[in-house]
Design a protein around this nucleic acid. Structure first.
Lengths: 205, 205
DNA sequence: AAAATAATTAATCAAATGATTAAAATCATA
DNA sequence: TATGATTTTAATCATTTGATTAATTATTTT
């Protein structure tokens, strides 16, 4: 529709500028509070280009959200499915990879979880292969470590320990004067501690 | 300003209806996405009454947010300050009181943390006595239990374990078919488990 | 270089929305 | 009950905002 038909790579420049700018503004203010004019300004481009390249604000948002959603959840998948790592190794890698990912994208969790909250039905597809998790190698490994441990609680716990600080970040950062460490150091420390904590938790009861 | 001068209790009826309706809609959709017309409809009242009683949408939001903010954080204060409970008892009570509070107000965490994220400067006052936490009885107790344990991490951990599931709730609830328990039972189980987990974590290292 | 296609711009539109107003209805008080 | 104050209502305003359009500039193709 008024969009370049063939060449899809040379002229990605402005198209990508818009998407990147939109991602920044959407993550900062949320969908409803961002005006297309904010995005245009952030991108340093004319307002009409947003509709020229992406048809509508909502469509642009959906594209960005799909990417962010994937980024937010995909870290876990290889570790859930892998057979040739111990649970210890998996937990270490998840903590490290995930916290480092979130240090690069600190606004990602609140952004994604907000979208799910605002529009739960729309995200059914996201949870595509969730049924298989119960029969995954990781769950089997955990059952072997502690038959009483519930894998739902395990997943909630490791996500909580990794993700929650980023959701609290604005409150924490504001406290950084009185805290001994700044936010980034706090999270670096957690990369080391979370595996130990998870190990202790799994053995409980 | 056009508002009743003297009598401030008899006619709270519609005033409160508006506030309650607004709290529901604001928590569901966020500030920017709620229209004053949504609030009026939720309350079953005429649109103009919102401005008559609360002057502006923003003012109404600020009033609600101040209350929700207090609700979200106040649970911890007595346990931080109390001298005559063991850390074990405190953690048990926090888990129980806080999770039960959030089961009554499941949208509270995302609502409050969003507001802080959108407008961090505005919430400086919230963190009024945070400096004193470092010298609080609870921190002293924790130091005695494990000198290596960091109280910042302890606070993050207990909040994470209690609060994070509610932020994930829309995703979890959607999974309830394939989960063994529904969300409420999952959280009831956590009331029992979190003290044990926290105890194991505190002893780490 | 000329023609055709694509990208960009400034101006504008139409719908949505927070807020106001003036009149009507309700309530309180003497 | 009559008078005055308060509350409620329907209609309207002014601004914001997502989107479109027509004209202009840039790029590609022949």
């Amino acid at each position: 529709m008024g969009k370049a038909k063939n060449l899809e790579k040379e002229d990605l420049s402005t198209e990508l500028k818009i998407k990147d700018a939109a991602a920044i503004v959407f993550q900062k203010k949320g969908f409803a509070a961002t005006r297309t004019r904010d995005i245009a300004e952030e991108a340093g481009l004319n307002l009409a280009l947003i509709n020229y390249y992406y048809r509508s604000k909502k469509n642009l948002f959906d594209i960005i959200m799909a990417e962010k959603l994937s980024t937010f959840f995909r870290t876990f998948i290889p570790f859930i499915l892998s057979e040739d790592q111990t649970p210890d190794e998996k937990i270490k890698r998840i903590s490290k990879d995930y916290i480092n990912l979130l240090l690069e994208n600190p606004e990602l969790p609140l952004f994604v979880l907000n979208a799910i909250h605002t529009n739960p039905e729309h995200f059914t597809k996201m949870i595509y292969g969730a049924e298989q998790i119960q029969h995954s190698p990781l769950v089997a490994q955990l059952k072997r470590l502690n038959p009483k441990a519930k894998f739902e609680q395990f997943f909630l716990n490791i996500m909580a320990l990794c993700v929650f600080p980023f959701i609290m970040k604005p409150a924490i950062s504001h406290l950084s004067d009185i805290l001994s460490k700044d936010f980034e150091n706090l999270m670096k420390e957690r990369i080391e501690m979370i595996p130990k904590w998870m190990d202790a938790m799994i053995k409980v009861k």
